[in-house]
Design a protein around this nucleic acid. Structure first.
Lengths: 100, 100
DNA sequence: TTTATATATCGAAATATATCGATATGTTTA
DNA sequence: TAAACATATCGATATATTTCGATATATAAA
């Protein structure tokens, strides 16, 4: 739990948006055809479409968010699905209350 | 209340430390001789001493934190005192809960 | 087994941040 | 009024971040 690194990751609107969108995947992303539901999150291509950024940038952003444990990644075949790590997000906000 | 800008400001250990130290000025800073107590906060020179950074860097950091309303500045004579803006800090953490 | 597709990584250019010393500004004191 | 002092601002350099297109890798489909 490195608050500084998480704050760096969350110093960018697209990354904040992604985290927010993933709170309600069914409301923010199209239905997925290769998995039954959103229980493993949303595939990179849908997130990319929604941000309008390049594929490499979005992949990089998701990797950053994954590296600081804000997201959980699951691979199904050629797709990678990302979902929120609610525990870590909760711990982060809680740590802020104490550290700040 | 710009979460992104606040997160940028809080992506630095010295600035996090300053905010934390100001939570208990009497425990973290020497007694001040030109004001009766810590009710307006702590003067720049004491904060500078504690960080070990240059005067210009500390002044710049405090200005950044003031700009996003994390700190309140009060001038007494040739000294500037900075204290936490508890309202804004509270609002920031609360916004994170909703936005993230 | 070749081809197509999804994602990750690499390398580069543009922009932003960190941090300093020097200097300017404002205030007090001699 | 001049000197001293606290803080703010300026200008510069080093380092980090942003973002892209190109390429590599892994998997699935033909």
């Amino acid at each position: 739990m490195d608050i500084i690194e998480i704050n760096k990751v969350l110093s960018n609107q697209a990354r904040i948006d992604i985290l927010h969108w993933l709170k309600k995947p069914e409301a923010n992303f199209p239905v997925q055809v290769n998995v039954p539901d959103f229980s493993d999150g949303v595939c990179v291509c849908h997130i990319q479409d929604k941000t309008g950024l390049s594929q490499s940038t979005v992949s990089h952003y998701l990797a950053m968010m994954h590296k600081v444990d804000l997201l959980i990644a699951t691979r199904h075949g050629k797709w990678t699905y990302y979902k929120r790590n609610e525990n870590e997000i909760f711990n982060y906000i809680n740590s802020l209350k104490n550290e700040l």
